[in-house]
Amino acid sequence: MLRPATVMRLGHHMADTATHEAHVTSTGLSNVKLGMWLFLGSECLLFGGLISTYMLYRGRVSNGPTPEQIYDIPFTSVSSFVLLMSSLTMVLAVAAAHKKDDRGTNLWLTVTALLGATFVGGQVYEFTAFYNEGLGFTTSLFGSSFYTLTGFHGVHVTVGIIMLIALVAINKRSRVPGSKSETVEMIGLYWHFVDIVWIIIFTLVYLIPV
């Protein structure tokens, strides 16, 4: 017998995560990719607000240390470089995914996650060092805005690492090579965005003195 219309929702078709099937859309562009770029456009306003708050408050140190006193430029330069290079490994993962090379994809995703973890580890070390030098979250406006800005960025990197690891795990279960290529690309966009935010933070927060 023919089934009534009301059960059609069980056939899961209009994909709302990875649409690797060729859907024909009005613009010819993928839904998820449009959604991801919209999200990143929105994130610009989020980080813009946090960066502006920091810029406004960076010189207001109360009795706590000043940025110049605690920033360790050589150390941060190295961790910035690590994050920058993770963008290269990420883009190599995306390229491998599009070639349906699952081994390469998983390899580069893992390397990216490791580089990201190195960066976050560096940030944890940096926070600990700053705290020991007298800059707490509540010490001064500089402290509050510094930890909020870099903390938000760190959380974004951490979320990215979790997504990368989960993706590798899911990819390994997948029997169809390259079936997750669009997901790899989306996480790649997110990862690069987090990187470009750090490009700005590195210059505005660390390199330009008050």
Binding site: L38, G41, L45, H192
Partner: peptide
């Protein structure tokens, strides 16, 4: 990074519009 790693330079212009709208705003 935006142009090459994120492919905006090669991709559909709509993506650029959406992202740069947020960025420049």
């Amino acid at each position: 990074v935006v142009s090459y790693f994120m492919h905006l330079k090669f991709d559909n212009k709509l993506f650029s519009w959406l992202f740069y709208a947020g960025l420049f705003l």
